[in-house]
Write a protein that binds this DNA or RNA. Sequence first.
DNA 1: TCGCTGTTTAACACCTTCGTTAATTAACGT
DNA 2: ACGTTAATTAACGAAGGTGTTAAACAGCGA
Lengths: 112, 112
Amino acid sequence: MTTDRLSTIFAALADPTRRAILARLAEGDATVNELAEPFSISLPAISRHLKVLEHAGLITRSRTAQWRSSSLRAEPLREATAWMDRYRRFWDESFTRLDAHLQRIQSEEKKQ
Amino acid sequence: MTTDRLSTIFAALADPTRRAILARLAEGDATVNELAEPFSISLPAISRHLKVLEHAGLITRSRTAQWRSSSLRAEPLREATAWMDRYRRFWDESFTRLDAHLQRIQSEEKKQ
DNA sequence: TCGCTGTTTAACACCTTCGTTAATTAACGT
DNA sequence: ACGTTAATTAACGAAGGTGTTAAACAGCGA
């Protein structure tokens, strides 16, 4: 149930191991072994996580010799953020103030 | 596997039906029946989606008489956005410019 | 070619998620 | 009390995610 892009992105982010991998990649490209090192899970498991991230567009992969290097591609996060921004006024103070300001203007316009 | 807050939030957002429900709630509170109306899935299914959203803190629920009204509580989206913001420099142009600016300042400080 | 290192694929188990229908609970109105 | 409306819980099945170990594949280097 679901193959839309946003769902894929959010699903990819819904795993702490994958988020940690992204965090690691933010510091620079890394091989599968390097990425696996901090975790107590097997290499095949990491390999699958990388496949999920790649499928979501959150990483790209290149190979040199027998090493496969992953690099961060955070553009999908922009999409995700863009979606969430629709709800910003429900939490963001400055947005609330802006909203109040606009309402004030509106009600003043009505008076005239 | 996983009960950390951020995972719960992202997992909740990884479903298009749930995102649509949030979109609907952005226009105002609604009962379960009202929320179910646009979808071709059963009421129990909607009821569970609401439970997922509630568990993620994305909605709160109140009851009056036999109706249970849901209302949006987007604060968790702020948390999610906050997490993603760490990667903003990987996609946002203005961030790149800011980054370049900061690096310029830093390297100039080193010269002195 | 052989062996080593790095990584993926295969096969399996387990648990969770998502949907269904049927039954139950809750509160209202008569 | 009874029937109706609103919503949830129960019980079940299909599908998918995550992890494991063992086997396979890929590329290097002697």
